[in-house]
Each structure stands twice: as structure tokens, then as C-alpha cells.
Nucleic acid binder design. Structure first.
Lengths: 339, 339
DNA sequence: TCAGGTTGGGAAAGCGTTTTCACTTGCAAA
DNA sequence: TTTGCAAGTGAAAACGCTTTCCCAACCTGA
């Protein structure tokens, strides 16, 4: 069915070897005439090389795998875009795996990607702290690495791999300071998934910053969330029901913050007049909601691009790249109304 | 380096053939003992089959390619998510190609995907009307199809392929009616990329609906846009500068509508009090901006899922699936203020 | 006892490439 | 006229798997 190199060679009246040499610009010298004949034949027959045959003999594919929780979450979408940009620059194809936030799928995809012999796996949707799961995942990834594959993770993970990490700690601290400076003293936090290290870093740093300013945050004022919009909405409502006196809410990511924003508005709670609200990530729409969200800018596209660069670099040593974050003050924060 | 089937066979003390039969549950009978020996050996050696070798001999890969304009555009992100869901169900891996809205890349990716011998290509980011380009793309895709690959497009294209298309015409008409019913008589349109059929369908249907109600839309009141947020913002401003009397604006997609919304707010133009604004697609955040956007719901995830189903179906005939759309009235539209 | 199945297993032929190695030339040097 | 080399070309061996074909062993019924 498909045109093979043999067909091209036959048509050009040369050997397989020569045809191959011409078509992938090998170092070996090939006469002008052969070159012309082969390229002409290839074009006439509309020859398209078979990447699988090439992969088999070259023992390398120009392909990387990316595992994310949810491609339609703006956070991951931006990361994906960053990866794609540098993948394209590096001439790599990208296999995207969506876990739909189910850890089990992550494991399955690692295996599938290993079958595909991708050059590298970039893990953007995980970071579980769960011991048992983490061991299982590590085993999978080690097996992948032992075949010569590279692994890079985005966000901190308890996994021996290249990593690129935004400064969650600094960002959360800046948010806390900002709110404290405005005069807030009573806080609520909408947490992320319990086991994610990203959650831990952001939450702990925020709480820590409050503590060191003499403010104690009761553990019940930290409501579990799941990084989804609706989770954020529910959490915001629960928070205000339990602690009506709260004047500032920190949602651990923008997606939840926006859910919270809408939920508060529907409840007639004015932001920032009655409650200040901050998020994290600075996803594109954070600037477009009303009021615009005060948040911390995470360079998501760079996160992706760096991860790929790390994974593709020849350097064998494990490296970790920290990317700075920056607080972005917008309209969702204001001084608390006088008590 | 890597463990091969031969290693497994050797360790189990059986032939390659037997090992292969066990490992992919072939129809051929294999004795219980052999089966046990092979599976044990495979596990002990941590064997991972090489998908490329399999692809070579099976002459099929369980892989599909998806070409989109921009993964971080919510419209495409949702589509991607739909595709991914049914791809996972069908046991397929998905190669995602981001064109960054550069047509040239589309062509390159078709070639690359063809090299990968993907089972199907889903084209979600194109739809150009440009003759020359379209011919070139068609040639590429035909070449792909002639190798046994399937092609599905999302949104109408002038390409012989399976297609899944949202009801752009009906949606745009519903928007026009809605605005007319509210009493608007002076309209502006923020167009999409000139060559996209999606643009044409939405714009023409809208204009047509106005015309048949006796309203003539001057061509200058149709400002070119590019389906991006900032493009929408610029267009909205240009529109109001040229036609200050406009009371309703139709942005051909939500992303531009949100850009317009923010731009108008910054200019002190109240939506919907001074100007009503409608978009198209109903991307997730359309409901979260203020005021919430009146728009047309396009079932983006279904668009993706259907496209994959079409592409993977054994049915050889070219099919087109139309998906209904539905107007969603929210806060961004209101009757015009009395003149 | 023997023809005719059935059952389980292996050898080997691909699949479409790349690359090593060996083989011709033609030509400069001896 | 040899010899030695470089340049250009091709034959063939991988790469890791699936599957066809063939063979041996065992069983069944006459």
C-alpha cells in the first residue's frame, strides 16, 4: 500500500542504502546525479518515511510525552502551550495524556509512553505525597529511565527527576504580606488537593507568614478544595458560613478563586468591599473577571518550556530550576471595612 | 539495553512465537504452563513491549493526531478534552500539534503525523477558504488518506473528510433575533479571521437575520477580528469610535467578546446599559465575567468526541455530523436605552 | 494397527528503515 | 605497470515484534 524506501530506490535505479543516504542527508558522500535521481523519485512517488521503522533502527524517537490533569484547566493549558513551543523548536512531537485527575491513569500513561519509547516524559499533573502511590509511580518512572528515557516534573515532587518549580513559597508569602499590610486580621484559606505538594507549599507559606505576624489561623479556617472552579465556589460558601467575620480569603489557585468570586457575588457578598480575595497562578482570565483578581503570577509557559529543555538536555545530572513568581495586585483586594 | 521479547522468551525457555502469543492473548491455544512461565519471565524482567516494532508489523498504530490553533484557547482546550476522553476510551494515544495560528505549521504537522502513521488526523484549527492553501492542504491530507489514514475536521471545511459541525447558522440567527426582540436596531459585528468558514457562517447568518428584519448593516460596521482576546478589545474600540450610536455588538466568539467587554469597561461604556454584547461558544468563563455573557452554547467536548468517533469508525463513507447549538441569555444583553 | 484429527510449539519470513562492511572504480604516486 | 587511496555504491545485517507455516506428539475411532 504505502510507498516504501525500496520503491523509491527501485524507481531511481539505486540501492536502498543510497536512497537512504540521500533522503536523510547522511555524511557519506553521494554523487550529484544519484541525489537528483533519488529526490525526484521520492517526490514522484510521494514518499513519506515510516517513523516507526526509523525509530526501531535509530533507537530513538523524536517524541515526548506529557501527562497533565486536565487540558482544559487554564493552568495546564498554558503549560502545554509552553511545552509545545519548545517541542516544535526542537523538532519533537508531543503526546498529550489527560488523567482527568485520576492517579491510576497516570500510571497507565507512563506505561503507554514507555511502550512508545518517548525520549522524555513530562509530568505536570501529579505531585502526590501519598507514600504508596508515590512509590508505585517512582518505580514506573525508574523503569522508564532505565531504558534511557528522561523525566521532568513541573511543581515539586518527591521523585528523583529533573524538576521546574515556581516559587510557591515566596508568592504565598507576598500575598499574606499584602493582605496584612491592607489591615486584614481574619483570614480564610481554600486549600488545594490534600496530597499535592503545591498545595502544601502555598498553604504553609501563607499560614507561616501570618503566624510570624502574630496572627493565628484556626485549622478549621482552612477548607479543603480541589483546584476546580466549583470546588472553590463551595468552599467559599462553607467558609463564610462558618466564619462570618473573615475579611480576606486566599484561594490556592485562580480557578478556585474565580469560583469563589462568583459564589460570593451570588450570595451578595461584595468583593473587595466586604471580603478581599486572592488567588494564585495569574491565569489569563484572572485579569478579566470583576473585580480583577489579585494573584501571583506564575510563568506557566516558561514552566513548560523549561521542563522540556531540561528533559531534552544531554546533561545527565538531575537538575531543579526555580522560577520566580510575582504578586499582581488588582481590584479584588482592599482594606477591610472598619469593624 | 532494553528488555526485548527475545529476552523474555529465553528466560521462560520458550520460543519467540510462544512468548508473543502469551503476551498478546492470541487466539492460538497455549498451554497453561507456558503461559505462566512467560508471564512470570515478563514480569521479572520488567518487559515493556516496543510499540514501534508492533506498529511496523501490525501496520497500525493505536495513535491519533490532533491539529489545533492554540491549546490555551478555551475553545480548543475543551475540544481537546473531548477528544482525549474518547481516545482514552478507545485505547488510543493522542499526538497534539499546536499551529500557533500559522497555517504553514499545519502542513508540516500533517506530514509529521503521516510519518507517524497515525490512524487518524483530527483537524480543529483550520478551515481556511484560501484557494491555494486549501488545495495544498487537501493534497497533503489525500496523501495521508491514501495510506489508509482517516481525517476528520471540526467546523466546516472545504475538504473531503468526515466533519462535525456546530450549528453556527442557527446560533447566530438566534442571537440576532434575541437582540432584535430586545429592541436593538443599530449593530456592530466583530468578525473572525476572514478566511475561516466558521467566521463566514456566523457573520453571514447574523447579517442575514438582520436583513430579513429590515435592518441593513453597513459593511464598515463589520470590523475584522482574529478570535483572540486582544483582537476583540481593539475591534470593540474601533467599532464604537466609528459608530458611536451602536447599541449592540456581536463578537463572533466568546474570547473576543470578553476582550471587548473589558475594553468597553475601561472606556467607561456600560454593558449592557449602553451597549449589549453577545459572543459565541459559551466557553466556561463566559458565565463568570461581569456581566455574564449572553452567547450560544457550542458543545465543544462533544465536537471533539464525535470527531474522534467518526475518524475511528470502520465506515468508509464520508459523514458529516451536525451538532445543535443553543442560545444562552445572560446579563450582557438588555433593551437599548431610550434614544 | 493405522489413517486422520487435534493440540501445542518452533523456525523463519517479513514489516521499513539505517548503517556497517565490502566492493568497484578512477586516479595519483611510485 | 603496479600500488595505494579516496569516492561512490550496494549487499546484508540488524532493530523488535507478529504471524504463517510446518512439525511432532498425542488422541480417536475403525
Amino acid at each position: 500500500m504505502a510507498v516504501t524506501l525500496a520503491d523509491v530506490a527501485r524507481r531511481a535505479g539505486v540501492s536502498l542504502a543510497t536512497a537512504s543516504r540521500v533522503l536523510n542527508g547522511s555524511a557519506r558522500a553521494v554523487s550529484e546525479e544519484m541525489r537528483a535521481r533519488v529526490t525526484a523519485a521520492a517526490r514522484e512517488l510521494n514518499y513519506v518515511p515510516n517513523a516507526h521503522a526509523q525509530a526501531l533502527v535509530r533507537a530513538t524517537t523524536r517524541t515526548v510525552g506529557v501527562i497533565v490533569h486536565d487540558v482544559s484547566d487554564p493552568y495546564f493549558a498554558e503549560i502545554l502551550r509552553g511545552i509545545q513551543r519548545s517541542a516544535a523548536d526542537a523538532g519533537r512531537l508531543m503526546i498529550v495524556c489527560n488523567t482527568f485527575r485520576e492517579p491510576q491513569r497516570e500510571l497507565e500513561y507512563v506505561h503507554l509512553l514507555q511502550m512508545q519509547r518517548v525520549e522524555a516524559i513530562i509530568l505536570a499533573g501529579s505531585g502526590l505525597d501519598d507514600r504508596a502511590y508515590c512509590r508505585e509511580l517512582t518505580e514506573s518512572l525508574d523503569s522508564f529511565a532505565s531504558l534511557g528515557g528522561r523525566v521532568a516534573v513541573i511543581g515539586r515532587h518527591n521523585i528523583a527527576a529533573d524538576a521546574v518549580i515556581p516559587d510557591n513559597v515566596g508568592g504565598a508569602r507576598a500575598l499574606a504580606r499584602h493582605l496584612l499590610d491592607l489591615g486584614h486580621r481574619s483570614f480564610g484559606v481554600i486549600d488545594g488537593p490534600a496530597l499535592l505538594t503545591t498545595s502544601r507549599d502555598r498553604r504553609n507559606s501563607f499560614v507561616q507568614a501570618l503566624t510570624s505576624s502574630g496572627i493565628d489561623l484556626p485549622p478549621e479556617a482552612i477548607i479543603p478544595g480541589d483546584f476546580t472552579r466549583d470546588g472553590g465556589a463551595r468552599a467559599a460558601i462553607a467558609l463564610l458560613e462558618r466564619f462570618p467575620s473573615i475579611t480576606a480569603i486566599f484561594a490556592l489557585n485562580d480557578v478556585m478563586a474565580i469560583g469563589a468570586l462568583v459564589a460570593l457575588r451570588e450570595r451578595g457578598v461584595a468583593v473587595p468591599d466586604q471580603v478581599s480575595l486572592v488567588g494564585f497562578d495569574d491565569i489569563p482570565i484572572a485579569a478579566d473577571v470583576t473585580p480583577a483578581l489579585t494573584t501571583v503570577r506564575v510563568p506557566m509557559d516558561q514552566l513548560g518550556a523549561e521542563a522540556l529543555a531540561l528533559a531534552l538536555s544531554a546533561d545527565e545530572t538531575l537538575r531543579t530550576v526555580y522560577l520566580p513568581t510575582e504578586i499582581v495586585v488588582r481590584g479584588s483586594t482592599a482594606p477591610p471595612t472598619a469593624p
